[in-house]
Simulated assay, not measured.
Amino acid sequence: MIATMEYVNILDESERLGKMILQSDIMQDYQTTRSIMETDDEAQKLIREFSAMKEHYDDVQRFGRYHPDYYDIMKKVRSTKREMDMNDKVAAFKIAERNLQKLLDEISSFVANSVSEQVKAPRDGAALTDSGCGCGSGGACGCAS
């Protein structure tokens, strides 16, 4: 690709936009809440418990309802996720994460629409949407918490 002045200007403006995002209040809130969550022993314990339960869930999911522990694991996955989500540090991080995702979606949409109405851009936090499934499996488990 031959670099033109227009291409260089676009790259410069993109870099400037990236720096503005990194310096925004929303990004600062995201980084602060993430750091707090990552250093909180209780939050990390809950995250580890949920991750371990998700591994059990993945094993059970291969067989679906036919697995002998299916219903037990489904209940445990939902309850450990709910417990993790109810932690103040985790909840604050998730709110900050959604706010950052909303900002990035808005910027993407603005840039895409500046080019053409037909250009597709993420909307409504599509990157964080898990199809209504409470455990983040993409809806495969059928839970709705």
Rank of each mutant, 00 (worst) to 15 (best):
K102Q: 10
D88I: 02
I21P: 13
S79H: 05
N113C: 07
I95T: 13
I95P: 00
Y66A: 15
K89E: 05
F93K: 02
V77N: 03
L22G: 03
M37S: 04
V119G: 05
R48Y: 08
D124W: 03
I2G: 11
Q28R: 13
R62C: 09
F50Y: 15
D29M: 00
C135H: 08
I10F: 01
V111D: 07
R98T: 09
G64Q: 13
K89A: 02
I36C: 01
S114A: 11
A3M: 14
L46M: 11
E6P: 01
S24H: 04
S79K: 09
M1A: 13
C133E: 05
R78E: 13
E117R: 09
E117I: 04
N99V: 01
M74F: 07
A126Q: 09
A3L: 14
E55D: 14
V60W: 14
I26Y: 04
D88M: 00
T33Y: 03
M5V: 14
T32I: 00
S35M: 03
Y7Q: 03
A92Q: 05
I10R: 01
V90M: 04
V60P: 08
S131Y: 09
Q61V: 12
E97F: 04
C135A: 12
D69G: 06
R48A: 15
D124M: 05
I47Q: 08
D105T: 12
Y30G: 02
E6D: 06
Q44W: 00
Y71N: 10
R34I: 00
K120M: 06
V8N: 02
P122A: 01
Y71I: 03
L11Y: 04
N99C: 03
D29Q: 03
E13C: 03
V77R: 07
L103T: 12
T80M: 11
A126T: 06
R65Q: 13
E106H: 06
S108M: 10
V77G: 01
E6W: 01
R65K: 12
T129E: 13
M1P: 11
S24L: 08
M53E: 15
I95S: 05
I10V: 10
I2C: 10
V8G: 00
A140N: 09
G18T: 02
T4V: 10
T129G: 12
H56G: 09
F110A: 13
N9D: 05
D59F: 13
Q118I: 11
Y66I: 13
D41S: 08
K89T: 02
K89L: 01
S14E: 06
A127W: 14
M27Y: 07
D29F: 00
R65A: 15
E106G: 04
S79C: 01
S137R: 09
D40M: 00
M84H: 07
K81S: 01
M5D: 14
H67E: 14
S109E: 11
G134E: 09
S137V: 09
G136C: 11
L128P: 07
I73H: 08
C135E: 10
M37A: 06
A92K: 06
V115P: 06
K54A: 15
S131F: 10
C143K: 06
Q118K: 13
K102A: 11
Y30F: 12
F93S: 02
M5N: 12
D72H: 11
S116P: 05
Y70W: 15
Y66Q: 15
R65C: 08
F93Q: 07
